Deep mutational scan, measured.
Amino acid sequence: MASQGTKRSYEQMETDGERQNATEIRASVGKMIDGIGRFYIQMCTELKLSDYEGRLIQNSLTIERMVLSAFDERRNKYLEEHPSAGKDPKKTGGPIYKRVDRKWMRELVLYDKEEIRRIWRQANNGDDATAGLTHMMIWHSNLNDTTYQRTRALVRTGMDPRMCSLMQGSTLPRRSGAAGAAVKGVGTMVMELIRMIKRGINDRNFWRGENGRKTRSAYERMCNILKGKFQTAAQRAMMDQVRESRNPGNAEIEDLIFLARSALILRGSVAHKSCLPACVYGPAVASGYDFEKEGYSLVGIDPFKLLQNSQVYSLIRPNENPAHKSQLVWMACNSAAFEDLRVLSFIRGTKVSPRGKLSTRGVQIASNENMDAMESSTLELRSRYWAIRTRSGGNTNQQRASAGQISVQPAFSVQRNLPFDKPTIMAAFTGNTEGRTSDMRAEIIRMMEGAKPEEMSFQGRGVFELSDERAANPIVPSFDMSNEGSYFFGDNAEEYDN
């Protein structure tokens, strides 16, 4: 993207840094990872977990959730003011799984939030270390993106479920800051804005008074975040219109849905970061690795190297396929839920299948599930090659597409044709070009129609051997075009429920 120079890199967003050079960025990201790792080690000690239990991804998720809940100030305040039966607002906890007599047992633990905050700050040299908290939120978000298709949420806001490739980060909490905003897809931002506008339509006082002023500035800020994701002048001009509207209503909703559809071809720039579970960072720190000293990046080879040398386990339900569970977590670790499966298959070195073909449910185990038949197995999170994460949407291309997802959002900077089903997408653009945004709409449609099938995206960008740390010898991959490109292809993934 041309304006790259004016933006802070995501590592800076990730670490609240002012302008830093590459070495400083690597050190501050490393410091953040160190903090998460030290916190995780301490929690495993508190909970008396064995090494194996500490490497269980379900335990990692519970521990991450506990610290996120302990620092969720708004919710904590709300819980104190609106006490609900049987919930102690000062405590947080969740299921911890232990191996007892050759069987997995679930144990519900409860801790004072104050105590968890103390352990977290102690692991982070006394700081609140917001960057580390956001990092864990993005890992949870990436896992949700890989596990669930947001059909219901899309339909509720009037969008087409086939636009799911635009929904990265749709389950990120509001408090995820600049680093969170960077990884949100165009569809996620559109959905947040539509929800806001709908509230304004239904509630006369939404934009009024002292609160209304705050609401208005939040609305304009979200519009600017979305505008910054678009790469064409016409899309940005249309966002200006939406932002400046005196009284946002149905016309703005129409414009936003139009823009979301246009992003299936004229893709937005959305950041991709490899955020790993805390149970990967903990053992690495415990083994003596100093992330701050060595430096770390979320968008280069580092996460690949770390996963190459990590042992992570997962509980497996009786009829689940461990290899499929591994694929789910591998995609989440690489922030690749909406990437082209052919690119992923090449990088991973084994075939990556669409969601609907995987015999696996989510990673988390519900409290009512029976533990008797639970097994555990090693997650295979290694890769054959590594590639640089991208934040450009890439230019655009036609490809055989599917009944489910009709476009992709690249996660890796790797040369390819970008699949999208042009006739299906263009069919949504018939007729409606009147109104105050008509010239911009016409211009956007013209650009979409001009998108050429034979153009290559990320020209000359390749993948790298894991021994090639400096990215000196790019390998331009070859793809098996007979395979499906979309992950949520004609899909039956479970729906995400809060």
Rank of each mutant, 00 (worst) to 15 (best):
M1D: 12
S9G: 00
Y10A: 14
T15F: 08
N21H: 04
R26Y: 07
V29Y: 01
M32Q: 01
R38M: 10
R38C: 08
F39V: 06
Q42D: 10
T45K: 06
T45S: 14
D51T: 15
G54I: 02
M66T: 09
D72Y: 09
N76F: 00
E80P: 00
H82T: 10
S84D: 00
D88V: 00
P95Q: 06
W104V: 12
R106K: 14
V109G: 05
K113G: 00
W120T: 02
D127L: 14
D127E: 13
D128N: 15
T134F: 04
H140E: 13
D145I: 05
D145T: 09
Y148G: 05
Q149M: 09
V155W: 01
T157Q: 09
D160H: 08
P161W: 00
L166G: 00
G169T: 09
L172V: 07
P173W: 00
R174Y: 01
K184H: 10
K184L: 07
T188W: 02
V190Y: 02
E192I: 09
L193F: 07
M196R: 02
G200R: 03
N205S: 13
R208Q: 05
E210M: 08
N211C: 15
N211P: 07
R213W: 05
T215S: 15
A218C: 11
K229R: 04
Q231D: 00
T232R: 15
A234L: 03
A237L: 02
M238W: 01
M239Q: 04
M239V: 15
D240Q: 15
S245D: 00
R246T: 06
N250F: 07
A251C: 11
E252S: 02
I253E: 11
I253A: 09
I253F: 12
L256N: 10
L256C: 15
S262R: 04
R267N: 07
R267I: 06
S269I: 10
H272M: 05
C275I: 14
L276T: 04
A278W: 09
V280D: 04
G282H: 11
V285E: 10
F291R: 08
K293Y: 12
G295K: 06
V299A: 07
L306I: 14
N309D: 01
S310Q: 13
N321S: 10
H324A: 07
L328D: 03
L328Y: 02
L328I: 15
M331C: 07
N334P: 01
D340W: 01
L344K: 09
R348W: 06
P354D: 06
G362Q: 08
V363A: 14
Q364Y: 05
S367N: 14
N368R: 04
M374I: 15
E380Y: 07
T396D: 00
Q398S: 01
F412G: 00
Q415W: 13
L418P: 01
F420M: 11
F420N: 11
K422E: 05
M426E: 00
A428Q: 09
N432E: 00
S438D: 01
S438R: 00
I444L: 13
I445L: 07
M447T: 12
P453F: 00
P453V: 05
Q459P: 07
V463E: 12
F464L: 05
S467I: 12
N473L: 12
N473V: 03
D491A: 07
D491Y: 12
A493M: 07
D497S: 14
